[in-house]
């Protein structure tokens, strides 16, 4: 029995290391200076240049990107993450509420219209989407960045599933208590959905933060770059450099993963519950 447990732990530790080592390398390398990385390769130990490197990438508009600091990119990423998550939650909760709690003409038809968006990811309609956003003059704007991403109905479906699982008697009791549709939504349904909202917020924040293809197309002005969007620029400059500032590249990569990773780790149980439940 004991030996078996030991083997289990060995496998799990190996798996954990597989996940952990690349990121640790990235972080440790970012604490070295460019020259030592150039000479000795990626580092697994503390290099002592943590403050230098991060101060440079956060505040200086030099090196990888010419007109934007790491701080600006961090800010843009935050806008995208929060904007997307909040926008999606608000819009999809309202839509799901209408679909589940109202009887109205074309209700089923609208439901199917929204449903079809699950069939085609953004990637397969990327070119016309780009042209339309361009035509609407939404290039290099936060709205152009965020709103088209909300088109997919995943959130609406999560909330629809959740609302369906709310006991029927609750709305019946509320009606007898004299609560109309608006009152029921605000007084009862929203407070009831708190955990669900939190879980979906985490999933959507990570999703928004991690967007790459869409920001790549929509933001050509560097002041709108997100950290994730900036990855390729970083790489391009890095590849072309005499003595590449690998430490700074890694520092930006660490910044790009830090907020979503922290959120997912801290709110792990909500996140896992949301992910698993919502896919049912």
């Amino acid at each position: 029995m004991k030996k078996v447990q030991l083997l289990d732990h060995a496998v799990l530790i190996l798996g954990a290391l597989f996940m952990l080592v690349p990121v640790t390398l990235a972080f440790m390398t970012s604490t070295h200076d460019a020259m030592s990385v150039y000479k000795d390769g990626l580092q697994m130990t503390w290099g002592g240049h943590f403050t230098d490197t991060y101060k440079t990438v956060l505040t200086e508009a030099s090196g990888f990107t010419k007109s934007v600091t790491g701080l600006t990119m961090l800010y843009n990423s935050m806008i995208l993450g929060f904007g997307f998550a909040i926008g999606k939650i608000v819009i999809s909760m309202l839509a799901a509420y209408a679909i589940v709690y109202f009887r109205f003409r074309f209700g089923v038809f609208f439901f199917w219209v929204i449903f079809t968006t699950l069939l085609l990811p953004l990637e397969v309609r990327i070119l016309p989407s780009y042209e339309i956003v361009q035509g609407l003059g939404m290039m290099n704007s936060y709205s152009g960045l965020i709103i088209p991403l909300i088109a997919s109905a995943t959130g609406t479906f999560y909330f629809r599933q959740f609302f369906k699982s709310v006991p029927d008697e609750l709305v019946e009791a509320a009606r007898i208590d004299g609560a109309g549709p608006v009152k029921f939504f605000i007084d009862i349904l929203v407070p009831l959905s708190k955990t669900m909202i939190a879980a979906i917020f985490i999933i959507m924040f990570v999703y928004g933060w991690n967007q790459y293809l869409w920001p790549t197309l929509i933001t050509t002005d560097e002041t709108f770059f997100t950290l994730v969007r900036g990855m390729k620029q970083i790489l391009a400059v890095w590849v072309g450099a005499q003595i590449p500032e690998t430490n700074q590249a890694m520092a930006l990569a660490v910044l790009a993963m830090l907020p979503p990773v922290v959120i997912v780790v801290i709110f792990q149980s909500w996140f896992v519950k949301g992910l698993v439940e919502s896919e049912k």
Partner: peptide
């Protein structure tokens, strides 16, 4: 007449209490 205006009160099988209140 709407349920709320019928001047009745109902007790449900699963109680239907508002869980957050």
């Amino acid at each position: 007449v709407e349920p709320a205006d019928r001047d009745i009160a109902m007790v449900f099988q699963n109680y239907a209490l508002y869980p957050h209140m």
